[in-house]
């Protein structure tokens, strides 16, 4: 790969020729603010927050869409750039309510962080003439048109990552907002995952934790054999949502509907909570001691009468390696039979 040399903020940087200025800067540990840019998407270039100055050019350019070139000298910070970015943010806030206290995204919102960093304190908010209400294609996601900054990350993710193409931007009574194609959307939540603001929120868990109170536990999805990596969001011993790190696992931040929204069963009240023993055709609750002793006695008796091979066991392709290992160890090493199988063929 051909490399080019350029200067960013006085620092000499070596970069691959097909990189953008933003990528070159990131590679060199120089931070440029962004809103619409996302590592997993092609540059969108809609927010203009990532503007930089190139020596010899009058007008600043958006660094996420401008390729590097040999010998250029780039400035990522100046009074002018600061003011430009402030201006961008102010314009966004004209239409974006500061309803952070009731927003799921508070604390993990890119817009909130930037507004704070760029000290935008005097933005004038123009409430929409009519309360904007719009249904999303899937009941699992809620769209808050007022909060949408039209950065197009969601549209691009639905197109590029999922190839579903369910989202577009429409004009309605002079205001722009998202429109979702009901027929196409597969409720995967990719749009939710990439939205930098609280314009798309998870509409499933009745309990919501604030971002700073929620513990994120990385794990592997429990459904299909892709083995996607995800993070369970835990609040008060309950799973209240699923998120994803952009750089983990085969899925790199992507999930399907089951992985992202299929967690409710964990706290379902039909869960088995006590051992059960059937007496005269009816189940009775029992303690562990009684249940385990009964199992051991029955298996011992059968083994004594007809040998180990009169016992069989089925283990589960849904459970962990460790559990499967122990089950086969139990059947082979304790019971003494190889009558052991699982639903591999399903």
């Amino acid at each position: 790969m051909d490399m080019v040399k350029l200067t960013i903020d006085g620092k000499e940087v070596l970069s691959q020729m097909n990189n953008t200025i933003l990528q070159a800067a990131q590679g060199a540990g120089i931070k440029i603010p962004t809103l619409c840019y996302h590592e997993r998407l092609n540059p969108i270039g809609s927010c203009r927050l990532c503007v930089v100055e190139i020596e010899g050019y009058d007008n600043p350019v958006t660094s996420c869409t401008t390729p590097v070139a040999e010998g250029i000298s780039v400035k990522t910070n100046s009074d002018r750039l600061f003011r430009m970015r402030q201006e961008v943010l102010k314009l966004l806030l004209v239409n974006h309510p500061l309803d952070c206290p009731i927003c799921d995204k508070a604390g993990v919102c890119a817009l909130q962080d930037l507004v704070f960093e760029y000290k935008v304190t005097n933005a004038e908010y123009l409430a929409p003439k009519k309360k904007q209400d719009s249904l999303y294609a899937t009941s699992l996601i809620r769209y808050w048109p007022d909060r949408c900054i039209l950065c197009l990350r969601c549209v691009t993710a639905c197109n590029e990552i999922k190839g579903v193409r369910a989202l577009s931007v429409i004009n309605e009574e002079g205001a722009q907002r998202l429109s979702v194609d009901q027929e196409k959307c597969v409720s995967c939540g990719e749009c939710l995952q990439v939205c930098p603001t609280g314009a798309l929120t998870e509409n499933l868990s009745p309990i919501k934790g604030r971002s700073w109170n929620v513990k994120k536990v990385p794990t592997t999805c429990t459904y299909c054999g892709c083995g996607c990596q995800l993070e369970l969001n835990v609040f008060d011993n309950q799973i209240v949502g699923v998120t994803c790190k952009d750089d983990a696992g085969i899925n790199r931040g992507s999930l399907c509907v089951k992985g992202r929204f299929g967690y409710e069963f964990i706290s379902n009240d039909q869960r088995l909570t006590k051992p059960l023993i059937k007496k005269n055709g009816v189940f009775h609750e029992a303690g562990w001691e009684e249940a385990l002793t009964l199992v051991a006695e029955k298996f011992s008796k059968i083994r004594k009468e007809n040998g180990s091979d009169a016992i069989g066991g089925l283990t589960s392709a849904r459970c962990t390696n460790e559990d499967n290992y122990l089950f086969q160890k139990f059947m082979r090493g304790v019971i003494g039979t190889n009558n052991l199988d699982h639903c591999a063929r399903l």
């Binding site: 536990v217 990385p218 069963f265 088995l272 059960l276 023993i277 460790e322 559990d323």
Partner: peptide, 25 residues
């Protein structure tokens, strides 16, 4: 005849191996 109540997926430590033979936590 006997039902034993088990911990679910998110209540247990361990590993899964996905289709590409990858062992993950």
């Amino acid at each position: 005849h006997v039902v034993l109540p088990a911990a679910a997926w998110s209540e247990n430590d361990g590993t899964f191996a996905n289709s590409e033979r990858r062992v993950s936590r």
